[in-house]
Design a protein around this nucleic acid. Structure first.
Length: 151
DNA sequence: GCCAACGTTGGC
DNA sequence: GCCAACGTTGGC
């Protein structure tokens, strides 16, 4: 079992939006970065644990626990010309982009980015490294356990 | 809104 | 295959 941190802009899909979804599950559409795509397509398994993170907002940080509920499959938005994630180079025969589904496990308190930064135990997390922009990053099991304990 | 950092594109 | 230009991310 692996552990991940997944960023979502709350103006797009917030933790409360996820809680309101049917089955509290959502397709993680719109990832257009190859590294992040590869994590979903090649490594994520049903049951993998996810830290749900709010980015590009007033209070960035971890806001909940989730898990992978459906294995990666082609991201539907790449085929829709009206969608902002449309990719003219993608075809159903040759999809470029994939997403998993993610299900809410538990909404938690907000653990702000500044707080995460303050724990020496979490100093190696990818989201704290300078210039990191990946929206999906692997999390060390020890880091995951530490965070859950402090939520 | 600014800006640093990084990924992608496309001409050559 | 290089690399400049451009677009995007995301904290502040």
């Amino acid at each position: 079992m692996r552990y991940w941190l997944m960023k979502s802009e709350p103006s797009d899909v917030s933790i409360d939006d996820l809680a309101a979804m049917s089955k509290q599950s959502v397709a993680w559409y719109g990832v257009r970065n190859y590294q992040a795509r590869n994590f979903m397509r090649d490594q994520m398994k049903v049951g993998d644990k996810v830290l749900f993170y709010h980015s590009s907002c007033a209070e960035p940080g971890i806001v909940g626990l989730a898990e992978v509920s459906v294995l990666a499959y082609p991201d539907a938005t790449q085929f829709d010309p009206k969608n902002k994630y449309f990719d003219p180079k993608a075809t159903p025969e040759n999809p470029r982009w994939f997403n998993v589904d993610v299900r809410l496990v538990k909404k938690t308190r907000l653990m702000p980015l500044a707080e995460i930064r303050g724990y020496p135990e979490l100093a190696n997390m990818r989201i704290l490294q300078k210039g990191n922009r990946l929206s999906i990053t692997p999390v060390d099991p020890a880091e995951y356990a530490f965070i859950v304990k402090h939520l």
